[in-house]
């Protein structure tokens, strides 16, 4: 088959684009340390979350020095904690969110950031992020979950280290 030389040029260009896309995503995973949400969170019984040692009393747990676990139950149509009271985490800390749902699929999105995951009944989604300066983030459900989906929102407060105290953790 005879291929025109111009066609060779744009074929090579298209291949270069594909290789470039794969290379940048590989760099993100290996070089920049971007992680994917996977199934490492394990499974829970969605019908008996109240009996779960952590999801039974969701909130911020201290896991180590400057490391925290935040257990969040996303249900129609609120985040627990998050909606009626904000999720509180200290500034400059590493926080792992464990999110699940007792009813339908929800979304857990920290608005305007790269942190988001689905909340699937029976499955625990875990995402680890590093918080910086004290600020506030919005929290949204970004998977349609029912008639009041649009009202399902919450808040994350990144509290200054000087104001952080033991009453803000469950354990």
């Amino acid at each position: 088959m005879e291929i025109h030389r111009y066609e060779k040029i744009w074929l090579a260009g298209a291949l270069l684009l594909i290789v470039g896309f794969i290379a940048t995503v590989s760099y993100g995973a290996v070089g920049a340390g971007i992680a994917m949400v996977d199934d490492e969170g394990g499974q829970v019984d969605p019908a008996s979350l109240d009996d779960h040692p952590k999801f039974g009393e969701p909130g911020t747990y201290q896991a180590g020095e400057n490391e925290y676990d935040v257990y969040v139950v996303a249900r129609q149509f609120l985040f627990e904690p998050g909606t009626s009271e904000p999720i509180r985490v200290p500034a400059h800390s590493t926080v792992t969110f464990h999110v699940t749902s007792p009813d339908v699929i929800h979304g857990f999105e920290v608005v305007g950031t790269n942190a988001n995951t689905m909340a699937i009944p029976g499955q625990v989604a875990t995402i680890t992020v590093e918080f910086g300066e004290p600020t506030e983030y919005g929290l949204l459900c970004h998977e349609y979950c029912g008639s009041a989906h649009h009202a399902m929102e919450g808040k994350i407060e990144v509290v200054p280290q000087s104001e952080w105290n033991e009453s803000m953790v469950v354990n």
Partner: peptide, 10 residues
């Protein structure tokens, strides 16, 4: 994306 806030690292 890489310049965004709160990137998932684990």
């Amino acid at each position: 994306f890489l310049g965004g806030d709160l990137t998932v690292i684990g």
